[in-house]
């Protein structure tokens, strides 16, 4: 059997590679970054919702498993340059900074994931203009390093706002979909801050709270146990507050139907999820159909969410739409199984 190619070493790709190896299939794992683990490792996520376990611990276990398995050939800092349909499977060209290698593979798992939305595109929040307006992945790093301070002056913030749905559910930036995780991650961040610094005021500005399924518990606890404040309505303008130093967040409280203007020390934007550059690239290389949002479209979203409909090509993780880590891991397993069946048939 020719090896099976897994593209992307985030939660879905790691999970697929590890399952393929355990099924006895020779596996090539290709990752464009220089490390394994994907976005959670790249951006140094702190605790993961909803169980508040450290990201490094969760993803680290998967990474170790893959690293320890001799049947998995790992190619870091490598991209796919070319893909042609072979007699069975594909002939692919793997490229690094200074090498280029042609390989025949019997099946491919696309686990190319997502990128965080670039919040500069929503200029009214002042990201990129005010140092104390930060992106939630940057805040994850602060939490991870246990250094929650204002980038402008290094002071511990007294009042922090989270703005949900930045670059999600918004036709003005061309992203009408929900990122599914912004609510949970922001609430988790607020809880984490309140655990470590109970004196910090935490406000979450939301349109709807979508802590779906069992994650609802996190939302309730954030109010009951951690006193996180929720205001329904979006911030529409961030300007320097009078007296200097703070940022004035202006919005409408749409439950009380009145304007709200609160000075904050720091504002955290829950930036949305978009198809990653890699996802767009493989869509074009393999001719995988994409939806209007730019994510890869499975052949049957209900009964077979990991089949692309093209021979020997399988999909897993956030490449097909915003997804939580457990779902990405599950899809990695499913795609591994389908790829293995295809390669062996």
């Amino acid at each position: 059997m020719n090896p099976i190619l897994v593209l992307g070493a985030g939660p879905a790709g790691l999970s697929a590679a590890s399952e393929l190896a355990s099924l006895g299939a020779p596996t090539i794992l290709v990752e464009r970054e220089s490390f394994l683990g994907g976005n959670p490792i790249r951006w140094h996520y702190s605790l993961l919702a909803p169980d508040l376990k450290p990201a490094e611990e969760v993803i680290g276990a998967l990474v170790k498993k893959v690293q320890a398995d001799a049947r998995i050939e790992r190619h870091l800092s490598t991209t796919l340059e070319k893909a042609e349909v072979g007699a069975k499977g594909y002939r692919v060209t793997l490229k690094t900074a200074d090498t280029s290698e042609i390989r025949d593979v019997s099946a491919v798992v696309l686990a190319t994931g997502f990128d965080h939305f670039d919040s500069r595109r929503k200029y009214e929040y002042g990201y990129g203009r005010f140092p104390d307006v930060i992106d939630f992945k940057e805040f994850e790093l602060m939490l991870h390093e246990n250094k929650v301070v204002r980038p402008s002056d290094g002071r511990v913030p007294q009042r922090i706002a989270w703005i949900l749905c930045v670059g999600s559910r918004d036709v003005q930036v061309g992203n009408p979909w929900c990122c599914r995780l912004g609510c949970a991650v922001s609430i988790k961040q607020a809880v984490e801050v309140r655990q470590k610094h109970p004196e910090v005021d935490a406000y979450v500005y939301y349109m709807d709270i979508r802590t779906y399924g069992l994650w609802e518990d996190l939302y309730w606890k954030s109010m009951q146990e951690y006193g996180v404040k929720f205001i329904r309505g979006r911030i529409g303008a961030v300007t320097p507050a009078e007296g200097g130093g703070r940022l004035l967040a202006t919005g409408e409280d749409t439950i009380l139907s009145r304007p709200t203007e609160v000075p904050f020390d720091m504002i955290v934007l829950a930036s949305g999820m978009e198809p990653s550059a890699g996802t767009k690239q493989v869509a074009a290389l393999f001719g995988v159909p994409v939806g209007p949002e730019g994510f890869l479209t499975p052949q049957l979203t209900d009964l077979n969410p990991v089949d692309s409909g093209l021979p020997g090509l399988f999909l897993a993780g956030a490449a097909t739409g915003p997804k939580a880590i457990p779902d990405a891991v599950t899809e990695g397993m499913g795609a591994a199984l389908r790829a293995f069946q295809y390669a062996r048939s």
Partner: peptide, 21 residues
């Protein structure tokens, strides 16, 4: 979606009992 961004950006909402939302 009742997000209120229209009202936040609205000059009239700032001074009148008025809300585009």
């Amino acid at each position: 979606l009742n997000c209120g961004e229209c009202t936040t950006g609205c000059p009239a909402a700032r001074f009148y009992d008025f809300s585009p939302r």
